Computed example of a mutant assay.
Amino acid sequence: MLRQGASPGARRADGRTALTIAALGNQVKVARLLVGAGADPDPQDTDRNNALLVTAQTGSVAMLREVLRAGPDLTRTNRFGGTALIPAADRGMSSTSARS
């Protein structure tokens, strides 16, 4: 679809982007394509989720690497007022697990 001109930043009615959907489904290859096409990782949906915030919830290190390549705003907060660091820490993620 990207080759046919679809926008990498297209959003559903609830504001959820293709990159956030890929992050929720741990579709790393799809995320890589979207980031390579210029997808913005920061737009938040009506639940205040975005690609980085859901990656912190799912704990996928491979997805985190892809989302970080897009240069996300690390200060965005979820509907509870927390950054991605909070759910990542809650799940036992650390800087060492992100590097492995």
Rank of each mutant, 00 (worst) to 15 (best):
L2W: 09
L2T: 11
L2H: 11
L2N: 10
R3D: 14
Q4E: 09
A6H: 13
A6R: 13
A6E: 13
A6Q: 10
A6Y: 04
S7D: 14
S7K: 04
S7M: 03
G9L: 00
G9Q: 10
A10T: 02
A10P: 01
A10Q: 09
A10S: 06
R12M: 14
R12P: 00
R12F: 14
R12K: 15
R12L: 15
R12N: 13
R12D: 14
A13Q: 08
A13W: 04
D14E: 04
D14C: 02
D14N: 13
D14T: 01
D14Y: 02
G15C: 04
R16I: 08
T17N: 03
T17A: 03
A18M: 15
A18T: 14
A18Y: 09
A18Q: 15
L19M: 07
L19D: 13
L19S: 08
L19G: 05
L19V: 03
L19F: 05
L19Q: 14
T20A: 14
T20I: 03
T20R: 14
T20E: 13
I21A: 13
I21T: 11
I21H: 08
I21F: 04
A22K: 12
A23R: 09
L24K: 14
L24Q: 14
G25T: 01
G25H: 14
G25W: 05
N26T: 11
N26I: 00
Q27E: 12
V28D: 07
V28C: 02
V28M: 06
K29Y: 06
K29C: 00
V30K: 12
V30E: 14
A31Y: 09
A31G: 11
A31W: 09
A31K: 15
A31Q: 12
A31I: 05
R32I: 00
R32N: 10
L33C: 03
L33D: 07
L33W: 01
L34C: 05
V35K: 08
V35P: 11
G36L: 10
G36D: 09
G36H: 07
A37Q: 11
A37P: 05
A37H: 04
A37N: 05
A37G: 05
A37R: 09
G38E: 07
A39E: 11
A39P: 09
A39Q: 10
A39H: 06
D40V: 02
D40Q: 12
D40L: 05
P41K: 12
P41A: 06
P41M: 08
D42R: 11
D42W: 06
Q44S: 04
D45G: 11
D45T: 08
D45S: 10
D45C: 09
T46A: 12
T46M: 12
T46W: 12
D47A: 11
D47K: 12
R48Y: 15
N49W: 15
N49L: 14
